[in-house]
Design a protein around this nucleic acid. Structure first.
Length: 106
DNA sequence: GCTTTGACACTAA
DNA sequence: CTTAGTGCCAAAG
């Protein structure tokens, strides 16, 4: 993927989110990596500020350890969305990244 | 332009 | 498995 440098960091994050196929998830780490930075937290900040939950599938972004992480309107919504898209979430609220992780490596 | 704020990650104990 | 501490970096105040 070739992020457009003219856009803001936040915008680039959103662009990457649009590449995530349905039924898959990615991690804050993967996004940061794809952008060539280690701003894991800044990625989360971008999501948190994202007012537009319908344009950007921010619910497909989880922590690198497989936990759900947070969500602007409540982590419960995030869980529902993921289940709805076919992602298996274990009882403890974890996702098997070896099966559902989408990488931006290209 | 410096300080604070986090939807995180990693290591060590 | 859990807790505690450190690092990270863009955006907002």
């Amino acid at each position: 993927v070739k992020p457009e440098l003219s856009k803001t960091f936040d915008q680039r994050c959103y662009d990457l989110l649009l590449l995530i196929p349905k039924g898959k998830v990615t991690t804050y780490r993967e996004i940061a990596h794809a952008l060539g930075t280690k701003a894991y937290r800044a990625v989360g900040q971008a999501m948190n500020r994202n007012p537009n939950l319908v344009e950007v599938p921010c619910h497909r972004v989880v922590k690198s350890n497989g936990e759900l992480g947070g969500y602007a309107t409540g982590s419960a919504r995030k869980l529902e969305f993921l289940i709805q898209e076919g992602v298996d979430v274990s009882e403890s609220g974890r996702i098997d990244l070896s099966k559902f992780l989408y990488s931006f490596s290209d």
